[in-house]
Design a protein around this nucleic acid. Structure first.
Lengths: 361, 361
DNA sequence: CTGTTAGCGCGTTCAC
DNA sequence: GTGAACGCGCTAACAG
């Protein structure tokens, strides 16, 4: 509870009364300097300050103007997780860039997955929403849409009628696979993040693959598949491990170990995120395999860490920060008709990929 | 602009009218289920939904109740930077944990340093603020305080009368230095982040050190000094390099190179952040020095990356996530009298520190 | 340049 | 269980 009691409630009104001017004039002193003489304005501002009035009440102002100066952002999954995901963070960084430029505040809205109707979204005082990476058919998304505010969807290519920002996950994945194919690799394994939202961890059956419901993951999977198949590698020979993105590194390493335990051992691992790729590298280290001498690893996203680890990670770069900046800018522009921005990706070749070992051919 | 026009403005009032009940009853249907029969409530909720009314208007509700369900957080420096600082991110993660538990939203408020009166703070619709790592005597802090809301200050031990969360930077720094002293090191260099807010980069003079105005940095510096002096090492023999925390890694490497170019070369580097420590390791690599064979490096903070790089970083751990969680919880509790929480730190010994090389003694 | 008049949409007594 | 009345604090017309 705040310290002030009713008696202390200091408002535009009371300042006006104390000064013997009208409420409007005081309001103008704060919001429309051109509407009154500089002297009067200074006098009002000074008096206000000494009275302990530091400006109009935010929510009253919002109610009146119908604007909040705030953009809302809602992540799929839990908030603490979002703040531990380098990809989400980089995205936020981009959003923050334009928030800073426009002096808009950024409201991060927690949503309880368990809850049927996320009340936090209903109650968010924002001018628009960015929804980031929601699974298809999400209650949260529904609730956001019901607010009838501008919405930008990020990484959900399947939504129609909404402005969107995403990449071509499928093509990017194809390039990653093509790179390894070009290095003569023929025995592949894949590390995937969530295919469904059930937090399953381990090797993946064909049936599960077919049901994959998180768009991004499914698209990347298809990209790998297309490239591999085109090179004459049947999809049946490729083992896939799944590890939810928010699981600890150790879980991912475990999955990678299972993949590397296959006979014959894969010489190349396609990881759907850089963190998974790093787990693969750690797993290889742990059983005495050299990267890239014995096994090549290619990641996805190009998070800052990718360049820092050793061996530096070969990966598909997507413009994470730009993605955030573009999404935010789009929200402010409010184009009359839904806009879809597909951002470019590029393969960054570093030291975690090399020619397939000779004896493997 | 939103699509709806005046005519479409759908409100508690219009729902009530359409149903032939009073506005209060509709309000109760949403907020106080015990005030009306379940049947009526269901009927109202259903009708509201079909009319496109999904709940009370957020800002109107806030104005009326005087509560926002939101906590504000303001960082020193630029927002995009905060989102690229692993330390700030970990802190946010902790804040997010309790936000998720309490279903409170998190408002991140950008402040333009250049601006004389940060209007974004005045206009933030929040129930309280967390201010993170502001320099002493900050206009921003002043503005926050003028809002007369609960405030928690983080990493600003110098503020009086406010609830606070921080660590004992000085003691932690002492431990880091003591560790290296125990490994027989005698020739030290220090990598510091911002001593003042002027973004200076390079070697530091004694005069500048004396003027240091960022509390955390100054305290760590003193901690190093105390330990070293107690071991008979005069402060004059210790060269200090400064590199602003938000500068690119390359700048920090440059400073580290300058430090390593000293004659005689230091065998130990005390870095005030893990990122600076990593820069030191990279610098050593670049000129063919082994870590820890030729030079030992100790960091500060224990960010996740510290354990990932090679050599894994010896560093001082502070409970970053807890710090955020505790700050947020404190904000909700609103203790009657200001509370100061000093969190524990501990030295984490990994592989970047070792016995001083023999030939150096 | 100044003041008067109207609400913005809602939550909460307090009678009925 | 229900409805009338009041006002949260402010800004946007408009009239002077």
């Amino acid at each position: 509870m705040s310290v002030d009691k009713r008696s202390k409630a200091i408002t535009l009104q009371s300042v006006a009364k104390a000064l013997g001017v009208s409420r409007t004039t005081v309001s103008n002193a704060f919001n429309r300097p051109d509407q009154l003489s500089p002297e009067l304005r200074d006098r009002i501002l000074a008096a206000a300050k000494t009275m302990g009035y530091h400006g109009p009440h935010p929510t009253a102002r919002m109610l009146r103007t119908g604007q909040t100066g705030t953009i809302g952002i809602v992540f799929s999954g839990s908030l603490p997780y979002a703040f531990s995901d380098p990809v989400a963070i980089a995205f936020l960084q981009g959003v923050a860039q334009v928030c800073e430029q426009t002096q808009a505040s950024l409201l991060i809205v927690p949503v309880l997955e368990s809850q049927t109707a996320p009340i936090t979204i209903q109650q968010a005082a924002v001018d628009g929403f960015i929804v980031y990476g929601m699974p298809e058919a999400s209650l949260v998304l529904e609730q956001v849409l019901s607010r009838n505010l501008p919405v930008i969807a990020v990484d959900q290519p399947n939504l129609i009628g909404l402005s969107q920002v995403h990449i071509s996950d499928r093509q990017a994945a194809r390039e990653a696979a093509a790179h390894l194919l070009g290095l003569n690799h023929r025995r592949f394994a894949i590390m995937a993040m969530d295919l469904l939202s059930d937090r399953y961890k381990g090797l993946v059956s064909a049936a599960r693959m077919a049901r994959a419901t998180v768009t991004t993951t499914r698209e990347r999977l298809h990209g790998y598949e297309e490239a591999l198949r085109a090179a004459g590698i049947t999809w049946q020979q490729v083992q896939i491990g799944e590890c939810p993105l928010h699981n600890p590194m150790e879980d991912a390493i475990e999955v990678a170990l299972a993949l590397l335990a296959q006979k014959p051992r894969p010489t190349a691992i396609l990881a759907m995120s850089d963190l998974l790729a790093i787990a693969a590298i750690r797993a290889a280290e742990r059983i005495g395999l050299g990267v890239p001498a014995d096994v090549s690893v290619v990641g996805f996203d190009d998070i800052p860490l990718a360049a820092q680890i050793r061996p530096a990670l070969t990966t598909v770069r997507q413009p994470l920060i730009d993605k955030g900046a573009i999404a935010a800018r789009l929200l402010f522009e409010e184009p009359a008709v839904a806009v879809v921005k597909v951002l470019p990706t590029s393969l960054i070749v570093r030291n975690s990929s090399a020619l397939a070992p000779k004896d493997a051919e």
